[in-house]
Design a protein around this nucleic acid. Structure first.
Length: 424
DNA sequence: TCTGGGGTCCTAGGACCC
DNA sequence: TCTGGGGTCCTAGGACCC
């Protein structure tokens, strides 16, 4: 049996831990730039606010009633780690799936004891971190997701639900579950399934796996096996090195100024370089992209990306910045109002595979060591003194890319000076 | 005025080879 | 009139996740 442990309304719950006055109120947390709603309390859901709804399109009555907060990722990331550490008390097999969800392995435990363990887990996480969680047990990940959904929605489960592959509870749940509520089935696939008369999770489970593979995809076939209780989805080791690293942001306001684009790219490259070195990788290609605001249909639209290969794999921010600048020059066009730029590091390899090449005559061992020391020092200073304590090049004033986040709460768990702002 | 950011996996189709 | 077939590799884009 495997358990999916999911934090309820995670970002909102984090905010409530440090500001209990938010209990009972409709609370929402906004995306970067305060653009749209990415987390909702039950009260806000009850007002009809949908996931991903644009802030500026919310009816004024709702904006007056609701407490809408900028996102505070320093806080959520830290709280997430506390939850994960608590889960490790219950099983040696914890796979962190996202900031608010983990799969926890319970192989070998007596199935009859699982619900009680689940309840104890909930209470412990609540007591140690202040975060409410729901627990779904099942033989496969897809079914564990269904069980978790039931644990959250159906009050008799009291936050913990166990589903067997066969059994009346499983059957009843799958019969009334729209197929698009399943993990891995979204709108597009749902539309195609509807055409052949499959609307519920149960109907999908009863479909022929091989035929569905041919008509749809291997992904859908695996979901069918999982619904029947046969594991077909393995999770990647979430601690494994990423295969690509992306950093991008929307601008706080649109801009046509190439200097502002260059500055944003430089920022993003610096962050991407940090991430790259933290996981001990090198990159051999840097992708740069720019785009206008796709929602402004009356404005001229432009989106373009380019991949710039590096002469040799590198993790030195200066190399990455050089490549990114060339990429930006190649795709920048005058006359457009840009909304977003970003960089992606592709083709990552472990830096232990650092290869000797013919180019080594051009870059001596001494140069490489200097580069490594410089980057290690920059990373250390930024870790200890705060992001951007040290950077390559000077920042500009009044940047277009400065984020709007006017409603952010204090970073209670990671900044002493902000902790003092709590009103008692 | 204002619509997130960061990932993964899979598939189709083109280029190329023999 | 007739113009192979099968394999690999790569890339772009779709779909999905939270």
């Amino acid at each position: 049996m495997i358990a999916l442990v999911d934090c309820n309304n995670f970002y909102v719950s984090c905010e409530r831990v440090f500001n209990p006055r938010l209990e009972g109120l409709p609370v929402g947390v906004l995306s970067n730039n305060d653009g749209c709603v990415v987390a909702r309390s039950n009260e806000l859901k009850a007002l009809g606010v949908k996931m991903g709804e644009a802030m500026h399109l919310l009816p004024p009555t709702i904006r007056r009633q609701a407490v809408l907060l900028s996102s505070n990722y320093a806080l959520y990331g830290d709280m997430s780690q506390r939850v994960t550490r608590t889960l490790a008390e219950f099983s040696p097999h914890v796979e962190v799936y996202s900031i608010d969800e983990s799969f926890v392995g319970f192989q070998g435990f007596d199935p009859a004891t699982l619900e009680a363990r689940g309840q104890r887990l909930r209470q412990t996480v609540q007591q140690w971190t202040g975060i409410p969680v729901s627990v779904g047990f099942a033989p496969t990940r897809v079914l564990a997701k269904v069980a978790n959904h039931a644990a959250k929605k159906i009050s008799v489960y009291e936050g913990v639900c166990r589903l067997d592959a066969e059994g009346p509870a499983t059957r009843a749940l799958l019969r009334q579950l729209p197929v698009t509520e399943l993990w891995g089935v979204a709108r597009r696939t749902g539309e195609r399934l509807a055409l052949i008369g499959i609307d519920t999770a149960w109907q999908l489970r009863e479909a022929d796996p091989k035929r569905m593979r041919r008509a749809f995809s291997v992904v859908l076939e695996r979901i069918i096996w999982e619904l029947r209780g046969r594991p077909a989805i393995e999770l990647d080791d979430m601690t494994a090195a990423k295969q690509q690293i992306m950093v991008s942001r929307s601008f706080g306001r649109l801009t046509s100024d190439p200097a502002e684009l260059r500055e944003a790219i430089r920022q993003h490259v610096a962050r991407a370089g940090e991430k790259l070195r933290r996981q001990g990788s090198m990159t051999s290609a840097v992708m740069v992209f720019v785009r206008t605001n796709p929602f402004q249909l009356d404005q001229p639209q432009y989106r373009k990306s380019v991949v710039v290969p590096l002469a040799r794999p590198s993790d030195d921010t200066r190399d990455l910045a050089h490549a990114a600048n060339r990429g930006l020059e190649a795709i920048f066009l005058k006359g457009y109002r840009y909304q977003k730029v970003g960089v992606m590091l592709l083709d990552l390899t472990a830096d232990t595979h650092r290869q000797l090449s013919l180019d080594d005559t051009l870059q001596s061992e001494a140069d490489r060591q200097r580069s490594q020391r410089l980057m290690a020092t920059v990373d250390k200073l930024n870790r200890e003194l705060g992001r951007d304590a040290v950077r390559l090049g000077l920042p500009r004033k009044n940047n277009a890319w400065a984020l709007r986040c006017e409603r952010r709460t204090p970073r209670y768990t990671t900044r002493w000076e902000e902790l003092l702002r709590i009103k008692l």
